[in-house]
C-alpha cells in the first residue's frame, strides 16, 4: 500500500530536474522511433557498402571451394541471411511499431512508456543482429576468396610402361598430355590399356 505525505521544501534545481524528467517521459517514444529510423538508414548503408565491397572480385562461385569450406560458406551465408532478416524486422518494429490492436485495458498513462521501452529493446536487438549479419557476410566472403580450391578432376591412364595420373592439359594427334606431380606428361592413347577418372591422384 502506497502512502503519501507532505514533504519538505524543494529546491529550484529539483524542479528543473523534474521538468527535464517529465519532458523525457513525454518525448521518449518519438525519440526512440527517430533513433531507430537513423539506425535503420545507417545499417542499410553499411550493408549496401558491403555488397559494393563484394563487387571487388575474388572467387565468386562457392562450388569451386574444397570441402568442407563450401558447406561452411553456405552455413555462414544462411546465418547472415537469418540474422539480417530478423535484425531488419526488429529495426522496423522499433521505428514504426507493431501493427497490433491494443486492448482497452492495456491503454493507460504508461502505455507509451512501455512501448518506448519495448522499442528501445527492439532497436538494441536490431543493431546487434545487423552487425552480426555483416560480420557473417564478411567471413563468408573471406572464406570464398581465400579458402582452398576444389581439386580439378584427374585421369588415371594405365600403359605398359606404368600408370600416369594428372589433370588434362590437351589432347592432340592421338596423344593425351596430363599435368602430373612431376610436370606435363604426354601419353600415346594407342598404348593405353586402361583409363579411368579419379578425384585425386595417388601420391607417388
Amino acid at each position: 500500500m502506497i502512502k503519501l505525505s507532505p514533504g519538505g521544501t524543494p529546491t529550484r534545481a529539483a524542479h528543473q530536474r523534474a521538468q527535464a524528467l517529465q519532458r523525457a517521459l513525454r518525448d521518449e517514444l518519438p525519440r526512440v522511433r527517430e533513433a531507430a529510423l537513423a539506425w535503420r538508414n545507417g545499417l542499410a548503408g553499411l550493408l549496401a557498402g558491403l555488397l559494393g565491397f563484394g563487387l571487388i572480385r575474388g572467387r565468386s562461385d562457392v562450388s569451386q571451394l574444397a570441402a568442407p569450406y563450401d558447406a561452411v560458406v553456405g552455413l555462414l551465408l544462411l546465418a547472415a541471411l537469418l540474422a539480417g532478416s530478423w535484425g531488419a524486422f526488429r529495426l522496423l518494429w522499433a521505428a514504426h511499431g507493431r501493427p497490433s490492436v491494443t486492448a482497452r485495458a492495456a491503454l493507460g498513462a504508461t502505455a507509451d512508456h512501455h512501448e518506448a521501452v519495448r522499442a528501445a529493446r527492439a532497436l538494441r536487438h536490431g543493431i546487434a543482429l545487423a552487425v552480426l549479419s555483416a560480420a557473417l557476410l564478411v567471413t563468408a566472403v573471406a572464406f570464398t576468396w581465400y579458402g582452398p580450391a576444389k581439386a580439378k578432376p584427374s585421369l588415371q591412364l594405365t600403359t605398359p610402361a606404368g600408370t600416369v595420373c594428372g589433370t588434362i592439359v590437351r589432347v592432340a594427334d592421338g596423344a593425351l598430355t596430363l599435368r602430373t606431380d612431376s610436370g606435363e606428361t604426354r601419353v600415346d592413347l594407342r598404348t593405353a590399356t586402361g583409363i579411368r577418372p579419379a578425384d585425386t591422384c595417388p601420391t607417388s
Binding site: A18, L21, E28, R31
Partner: peptide
Amino acid sequence: VVRRPAATGGEEPPGTEETMM
C-alpha cells in the same frame, strides 16, 4: 526512462521524497 538513466537512479527506496510539479 529511455535514454535518461542518469535522471532516475533506479528503484525508489521506501519513504523517498519526490519533487513534483
